[in-house]
């Protein structure tokens, strides 16, 4: 396990278990995720890595039949506590999905959507600045600054996914969760999005689920290996890929099962 002092932690999970109806998907997860780095979650299909990621901004519970026990502390506060406002959780902890899912609005309206839910319509100067800044941050501004009025779904997939990241930024999130953000993209677009993730890690704590070993290796500082709803290993990425501690980890990263 990786050691860290409490205030350098973005996420601190203790004894987290999760059930879909009668099926237990997560078993007593303990995990510390440090601030300002990229942590990747790897593991075979169905190992619970996406479920775990989604439970960190409580998007799992919308299904209705999900039961969660334990603690997920984000920035020192347990987001599973009763007095937590879900809307605030979603703002501080942004989520990027597997398939780019821009809203059926213009590029500009997409970037401003979350911001406007908090601040209202805003003046032209305010919103122009937010749109430019956010798109600059995701390295998209120069490419689409003339197409801000276009429908977001008409952009290329790579641009759509970057836009989906950009629209999280105006409400100043602390943590970005990404659920296989590149799996719908071609290799060139994947490289571009990885580059972006790497750039954003200075400002945000990023947790990324990936099926792609090479991607975990290239684009993360620490790596968590999960199997059957449990965390098997959590170490700096280089170490894990060079000398995994557990046999299961070694087998998985060598591609003996997936």
């Amino acid at each position: 396990m990786v050691d860290a002092t409490t205030d350098s932690l973005a996420i601190r999970v203790r004894d987290l278990s999760l059930w879909y109806g009668d099926f237990q998907a997560l078993f007593n997860i303990d995990l510390d995720v440090k601030k300002g780095i990229v942590t990747s979650l790897i593991g075979p299909s169905g190992c619970g890595k996406s479920t775990f990621l989604r439970s960190v901004n409580r998007i799992t519970e919308r299904l209705g039949y999900v039961r969660t026990e334990g603690q997920i502390k984000v920035l020192g506060e347990n987001i599973l506590a009763d007095d937590v406002e879900l809307i605030q959780v979603r703002k501080k902890i942004g989520m990027v999905f597997q398939r780019p899912n821009p809203l059926p609005l213009t590029v500009r309206e997409n970037v401003l959507f979350a911001w406007r839910l908090v601040h209202g319509k805003g003046t032209k100067e305010q919103t122009d600045e937010i749109v430019e800044q956010s798109l600059q941050q995701v390295l998209l501004w120069d490419r689409i600054k003339d197409r801000l009025g276009d429908v977001a779904t008409s952009l290329a997939l790579e641009e759509q996914q970057k836009l989906c990241i950009a629209r999280l930024l105006p409400v100043q999130p602390e943590v970005l969760l990404m659920d296989e953000p590149c799996s719908a993209l071609d290799p060139a677009a994947t490289a571009a999005v990885e580059e972006l993730i790497w750039k954003l890690r200075e400002q945000y704590t990023i947790m990324i689920v990936t099926h792609n070993m090479a991607q975990a290796r290239r684009a993360s500082d620490e790596c968590v290996f999960m199997l059957m709803g449990k965390i098997i290993e959590h170490r700096p990425t280089d170490e894990m890929f060079l000398a995994p501690e557990h046999q299961e980890t070694a087998d998985y990263i060598e591609g003996r099962y997936g």
Binding site: I87, K91, A114, L117
Partner: peptide, 18 residues
């Protein structure tokens, strides 16, 4: 209206009514 649009909106902190 495709469900992913709703999910995207919810995940950005929008309420159901919004």
């Amino acid at each position: 209206v495709p469900r992913p649009f709703r999910e995207a909106s919810w995940s950005l902190g929008a309420t159901r009514w919004q």
